[in-house]
Amino acid sequence: MPARLQHKVALITGSGSGIGLESTLLFASEGAHVLATDINLQAAESAAALVSQRYPDVKVKAIKVDVGKEADIKAAVDVAVKEFGRLDIMFNNAGIMHPEDDNALNTEEKIWDLTMQINLKGVWWGCKYAILAMRENKKDESKGLKQGGSIINTASFVAILGAATPQLAYTASKGAVLAMTRELAMVHAREGIRVNSICPGPLKTPLLMEFLNTPEKKERRMVHLPMGRFGEAIEIARGALFLASDDSTYVTGTDFMVDGGLTAAYVTPVGDQVVDPPKSLV
């Protein structure tokens, strides 16, 4: 079976951990050349080193990127095009969930502004410069490369349902990502540029576990999960792979839910049985 991202070039933000790390490794395993970016350069370099070790046939480069700075994102897209010749996939994955993010009464303006700077403006800038680069992509039938490209924006299930524990700035930022994604998808559809959001459910990642820092907070989330468990970052990466690949050529403007059934549930099943994650994920 041919690799699904063979010869394609992907830029992934937040490559140093969680969804970003798993996506960096997964995309490379499917043949993509990857620009791994993270605000923590050492983490991005570690991700790139793993790619080089496991998949020596693909090209990889790591750079530091603060997605809260427009100049950093523009520079990253420029590096991807310069190093690899084009940009086919932009995964705007990096984001924050600030521990002081709370409800409308308690969230300070500085926390709101910081969250919007990274989670919303950062995605906007990522889309902006990716679109400009993807417009320059040439079709290459010998390598299976198309014009345009695929942009994937990480949103969240809370943009659909609202959060069980107060995190107003985060929830608002992710809702805005969904709206922005839909509009960009419509505006650029006939350029061959697809734009989709991926909406993870609660995951067993450092970002969420640092926020759910008490047994009460964890249980508040767990009661809404039909499978009785948090998701794994690799499960989101596999959803992103679908959106990045030609398996989804007729998919744009969608809110792709990868949430273990959370948004479909009115109540969760009764009983103590829990569906464990597949052994391949743990």
Rank of each mutant, 00 (worst) to 15 (best):
G144T: 04
Y170D: 06
L184K: 01
I151C: 02
Y170E: 06
P166A: 13
E191P: 05
Y170T: 07
A189Y: 06
L184V: 05
L184P: 02
T154M: 06
R190L: 08
T165R: 08
M186K: 14
T154H: 05
I160L: 15
V187A: 14
N153R: 04
T154W: 03
G144H: 02
G162D: 10
A155K: 02
A189S: 14
A176Q: 09
G149R: 00
G144P: 01
E183L: 13
F157W: 07
G148M: 00
Q167R: 12
T181W: 12
T165N: 10
M180K: 14
G162C: 13
F157N: 04
A155N: 04
I151W: 02
G144V: 01
M186Q: 14
H188C: 07
A169L: 13
L178S: 10
S173A: 11
A176D: 12
N153W: 00
L168H: 06
I152K: 02
A164F: 11
G162P: 12
S156Y: 05
R182F: 08
A163L: 08
A169W: 07
L145W: 03
H188R: 09
K143L: 02
V158M: 03
F157M: 11
K174G: 10
E183T: 15
L145P: 04
G162E: 10
L161F: 04
V158Q: 03
V177R: 07
R182D: 07
Y170L: 09
T181V: 14
G149S: 04
E183F: 13
A172K: 13
A176P: 12
A179Y: 09
L145E: 01
T171H: 13
L145M: 06
V158R: 03
Q147R: 10
A185Y: 09
I160F: 12
I151Y: 00
L161W: 04
A172H: 10
T154R: 00
G144S: 05
G162Y: 09
R190S: 09
T181Y: 12
V177Q: 10
T154D: 06
M186D: 09
G144L: 01
S173D: 05
I152T: 02
G162L: 13
R182S: 11
H188G: 06
Q167V: 14
K174M: 12
L178P: 08
S173L: 06
E191R: 05
I152W: 04
T165D: 06
A172F: 06
P166K: 11
Q167A: 15
Q167K: 13
G148P: 00
L168R: 07
T171K: 13
